[in-house]
Amino acid sequence: MKEDGQTMSDDFINLTIEDLSDEHLCCIIRSRKPHKGIEAKRLWLSDRLKEGHVFRKLNAKAAVFIEYAPLERAWVPIIGDNYYYIYCLWVSGDYKGKGYGKLLMEYCLTEAKEKGRSGVCMLGAKRQKSWLSDQSFAKRFGFEVVDDTDRGYELLARSFDGTISSFGKNVKNEEIENKALTIYYDMQCPYVYQSIETIKLHCERNDVPVSFIPVDTLQKAKELPCVFNNWCVFYKGRFETVNLLDKSYLERILKK
């Protein structure tokens, strides 16, 4: 029960380098033992927080959080002056429908305005993708489609001063020379580690060539030949998805 004067916003904390090792990272993974994906994310965050990355979470063991960063330092192939980029805004389970998502989005937009940012942008799609934040929710806050790709991905932005952000020209390529299954990734998402392990095992058992390419610098992220939020998949030289793959999804791609 809240004491007099307390509000829902008091329930949130912003991660710092000092408390990063102790805080729950809000993802749906449940494990009492050390989880390699979560530890990899902690390492990734330890560097990003120094660059202005914000991880704001409900002060509970729950998947209620937002992650965003200055666009010029965000590991995505998106360009624009003086914007914030939202990697992820997530509210799950019993916490849905209680206003937490609204509070998180408003916090990001308010901070952007207070710091003189030109706007905020995020990755979306014409049809909602399971690993992307809800773009219909974002549009309630004034986000609009400002760029798109031939494969149905969209860049949503809320501009405060009329300037726009856009996908880098390289994003529109959506093709690479390597015809084998090729996956670009970084360790921002704790699920990336286990998705890689699943794919490696399946490809080894079925003699499927696969190439994993770590995106381990900002420059590599900005120069990627497709949209990217922490993961992207190519097969037969063509871009397929930014969704993480389970066995059934992988098999569907390999049948093409």
Score class of each variant (00 low, 15 high):
Gly5Glu: 04
Asp150Trp: 15
Val227Ser: 00
Lys102Ala: 05
Ala63Pro: 10
Gly97His: 05
Gly5Gln: 12
Gln128Arg: 05
Leu123Val: 11
Phe239Ile: 12
Tyr249Arg: 12
Leu156Phe: 14
Ile213Gln: 13
Val146Trp: 02
Leu218Arg: 05
Asp147Lys: 03
Asp186Ser: 07
Thr16Ser: 14
Lys102Ser: 08
Val145Thr: 01
Phe239Ser: 07
Trp75Asn: 05
Lys57Phe: 01
Val215Trp: 04
Val192Ile: 13
Glu174Thr: 05
Lys247His: 13
Asp134His: 01
Lys222Gly: 02
Leu45Tyr: 03
Arg238Val: 15
Asp246Pro: 09
Gln188Tyr: 06
Cys88Glu: 06
Ile196Gln: 09
Tyr84Arg: 02
Leu123Gln: 14
His24Lys: 13
Lys179Ile: 12
Asp4Gln: 11
His202Asn: 07
Glu114Arg: 03
Leu45Arg: 08
Thr241Gln: 01
Thr217Tyr: 00
Asp81His: 02
Leu132Ala: 08
Thr7Pro: 04
Leu49Arg: 11
Thr198Phe: 14
Arg30Trp: 06
Tyr100Thr: 10
Lys41Thr: 13
Ala221Arg: 08
Lys236Asp: 03
Leu254Pro: 02
Ser211Pro: 06
Leu132Asn: 01
Ser248Gln: 13
Ala62Ile: 09
Arg48Ser: 11
Trp231Asn: 03
Pro214Ser: 11
Tyr68Met: 09
Leu25Phe: 11
Ala40Asp: 15
Glu174Val: 09
Arg252Asp: 09
Ala221His: 07
Ala138Lys: 09
His24Trp: 00
Gly5Thr: 08
Gly152Ala: 05
Thr110Trp: 08
Leu109Asn: 03
Gly168Ile: 14
Thr198Pro: 09
Lys96Cys: 12
Tyr191Cys: 10
Lys255Phe: 09
Glu223Arg: 05
Val120Trp: 00
Pro214Cys: 14
Asp134Ala: 06
Leu103Trp: 00
Asn229Gly: 06
Ile13Tyr: 13
Thr241Ser: 05
Leu103Arg: 01
Leu201Asp: 07
Tyr153Cys: 09
Gly80Ala: 00
Ser133Leu: 02
Glu251Trp: 12
Glu39Ile: 11
Val120Thr: 01
Ser195Asp: 03
His202Lys: 11
Ile78Ala: 11
Lys102Asp: 14
Ser9Asp: 15
Ile29Gln: 05
Leu58Arg: 04
Val233Pro: 13
Glu174Ile: 07
Thr163Phe: 02
Trp231Tyr: 05
Arg205Pro: 07
Leu244Glu: 02
Val227Gln: 09
Arg140Pro: 12
Trp90His: 03
Val233Tyr: 06
Lys57Glu: 06
Ala69His: 00
Asp19Thr: 09
Gly52Leu: 10
Lys169Met: 15
Gly99Val: 10
Leu89Pro: 06
Ser165Gln: 03
Glu175Arg: 15
Pro70Met: 01
Cys232Leu: 02
Leu155Arg: 00
Lys255Ile: 14
Asp216Phe: 09
Leu245His: 15
Ile183Ser: 15
Gln6Glu: 12
Ile164Gln: 00
Leu43Arg: 14
Tyr184Ile: 14
Ile38Arg: 15
Val171Met: 07
Ile79Phe: 01
Leu103Gly: 00
Arg42Gln: 10
Leu58Tyr: 02
Val227Asp: 04
Thr217Phe: 02
Thr16Glu: 07
Val208Gly: 15
Gly101His: 00
Glu197Ile: 06
Pro77Ala: 07
Tyr95Asn: 12
Met187Asn: 11
Lys256Gly: 03
Ile253Glu: 01
Phe167Glu: 01
Phe12Glu: 15
Lys113Glu: 12
Cys108Asp: 04
Glu177Asn: 07
Tyr249Val: 06
Thr149Asp: 07
Val91Cys: 06
